[in-house]
Design a protein around this nucleic acid. Sequence first.
DNA 1: CTGGGGAAGGGGCCC
DNA 2: GGGGCCCCTTCCCCA
Length: 486
Amino acid sequence: MEMVAEIRTKGPSRTPVEPGQQQALRVTSAEMSASHQSRLLKQLDEQRQQELFCDCNVLVEGRLFKAHRNVLFGSSGYFRMLLSQGARDCSEPVSASFEVFSPDTFAVILDFVYSGRLALTSDSVIEVMSAASYLQMNDVISFCKGFIKSSLDISAKEDEDPARAPSESTAERQGGLPAARRKDPGSPQPSPWPIYCGSPRDEYYQEPPAPSPKRTTAPPLRGCRKPAPVQQPPASEPEVLSDVGGYQLTPAPELEGRGGKGTGKRKVWNALPDADAMFSMDLQGAPLHKAQRADELYATLPTIVGVVGLFNKDSSPSMRFKCPFCTHTVKRKADLKRHLRCHTGERPYPCEACSKRFTRLEHLRSHFETIHQARKLVCRKCKRHVTEQSGRVVSEGTRRYRLCNECIEESGCEGVVLDGPDAGSGESGLFLAVDAEDNDHDKAWLLTDEDEDDLAEDSGADLIIQEVDDSEEELDLQCENKPVFT
DNA sequence: CTGGGGAAGGGGCCC
DNA sequence: GGGGCCCCTTCCCCA
């Protein structure tokens, strides 16, 4: 109705608009609106280039950028906060100074603010994303995530040699993608210069897919205030290399031809993908081959995310490393690498007993000792402290826990298989075993000839620590519910 | 529905 | 830089 009214007032005639004409008028007005916005933005950009009406000075490592506070206000949460503090005093220019990113990086971001186009390279994307995170520009962050995702896709595809590609089932077993996620041989070849196009800006911010209520399939990220888990599209949707987050990737005309030279990785992004949807990942089961690229991401971090934010007691600057995915900063690069796992979904430490995966060795060890070794000297039933004499280790599948002798007697060992010198012979899958820490000769009575092989695998005595490459994920899944011990 | 306990997982920091 | 420990928070399960 607004659009119709606008045209009515602007039109040469005062004749009322016929109802049948309204749809066409709305389309026309929408086009006009888009065109108007585009012209306005272009005009503002020209003003910026000519330093006309610029009321905001941004100093980045000694290089001065001039801009309009209204534009910055509308584009960056950081500037919104900064400018709000002095909102009533518009007479004097506002100045801001940054040392946490390079002038080139800020130039890229400022160009985006004034043009809607983000010129990224594989070398700059992390720094741009880090700066965008600092400046609280979620759309730029989403751009960068999409860029990284696309880069990972391309790298992954390049790694796949079609001539040597294994069969579908074999490939999946070896850590590849399910068939639905593989590149369709009939799909058009991806352009080396992808951009997003064809989607209105107001569709950029889609609600991320609802997380699975089951922790086993998609465990929530704890402790991280605002996690941005790297995820991939649903497996049911065929993955097309040139399509990211539902946006078709097409060559950026202004960079075509240029890109063939040099690194060939420069991309311009014209619209925002749904970053969360793009980066969906089976955190628990299969981080998939893209998590392998996490190391490549880590490799680009040191000089990029180092920020001087805080000061030590002696007023010397304190270098901290900022996470490119969230606002978290850490003192050490190693801590950042550890932190990044909560974003990338990388879980290099699988439990040999239950195939559950962990981001840290210590978590795996804790899990194994608690769940599979019953290291806690506490009766699971009455919570009393037990000793080797006053309690026994009960095994239930791959899970082990302790019960005191009283609780064992109370339970009557109904449906419990008690193994041991004084153990009864129960009938269920629950059996009593000696503590894994007991001497090996004490285990001898546990074994029948028939069981010996199984128990050799399922003694639960030792934790096999094996840091695995996520590309071999599927192998681990095969081992699910088939605990392997030595 | 609710509270407590257990398990998982993240951050800080020391060795 | 990695390993490990401690502490804390969050989530899930169960009574």
